[in-house]
Simulated scan of single mutants.
Amino acid sequence: MEKVKRFYRGLSPKRKLVFWVCIGIVSISVIRIGVWQATKGVSTSPRQYLKKLYSQEPSERKLAMYMLGISGIKQSLPELEKILKEDRAPDIKRTAAWSIGKLNMEKLISLFDSTEKGTKDIVMETLLNLDKNNIYTLLKKFPAEDMDTKVKILTYAEKSKDKNVYKEVLKIGEAKEEAIPIRKEALEIAAKNIPFSDIESTLWNLYYNDPEQEIKEFSYTLIKELKEKK
């Protein structure tokens, strides 16, 4: 060690700088070799990701699902669907739904027809997180859905800030086959987000011609409120 010190003291300032640069290069090389040795046995093959889907560690499971999704490994779809349908943890189900959507959006849309409420709600949420235009898909499915799901779709529609979505919501308010509470909710959303000049004639038509007295009265109330705001 003493010899090294004497050697270093005998160097010129320029050579000392070169000495420390060399030390830095050697240190970085040692670190890189250590990292390589630590990770060289780690596989990133689809088989490894699929195995980790059933890890006891939730973070490993979520990472595996995420990697399968972004890597485009479509052979994992059956396993991801099984997890979405059967797992009880909402965060695991959400990650599975997200990966399914990344791999095959049509598959995720088909899973919206699930009869299990938790799965259905997560699929609906994920569809809109992946692509806000999926609200149109949900609105097309609207007539066949139960009351609770219809209310949730209307809530998402209101948040869309899309004037064409609001026009579709107005059609729901006009639909005589829909339940009165749903129609009123749809009309209220439309009235809040569509200019009065564009919705006035529809509201007057409902007031004069709708078979439901409650809808007539509600339409007239909306007309009065909107006129007062003008």
Rank of each mutant, 00 (worst) to 15 (best):
K141E: 05
P13M: 09
L103Q: 02
V21C: 13
E168W: 15
L17E: 02
T149W: 15
E212D: 12
S59H: 14
N193D: 00
N205D: 10
G41I: 13
S114Q: 04
L108M: 06
S114E: 00
I153F: 08
N205P: 09
Y207T: 02
I100V: 04
I25L: 10
D210N: 05
E81D: 09
D146A: 11
S71E: 06
A64W: 14
K140N: 11
K227Y: 13
V26Q: 03
E200W: 11
Q56N: 10
G101W: 12
E214C: 07
G72P: 06
I153W: 08
G118W: 11
S27W: 15
L17G: 01
S45N: 12
T202Y: 14
A186T: 05
V123E: 00
K82W: 15
Y54H: 07
E168G: 07
I153E: 00
E174D: 03
I28A: 05
K120H: 06
V123F: 12
L187A: 00
N134T: 05
S29W: 15
Q213N: 10
I31N: 05
D131Y: 10
K224A: 03
F196H: 09
S99L: 03
K171Y: 11
L127M: 05
F19N: 04
L17A: 06
Q213T: 01
Y136K: 09
G72E: 07
W98L: 13
Y166N: 01
P13E: 08
T155H: 07
K230R: 12
L170K: 08
L206V: 01
G118K: 09
N104C: 14
K152M: 04
K132Q: 02
E125K: 13
G118D: 01
Y207R: 04
R183I: 00
T155E: 04
I92K: 04
N129F: 15
R9N: 11
A97W: 14
R88D: 05
P46T: 05
A89V: 14
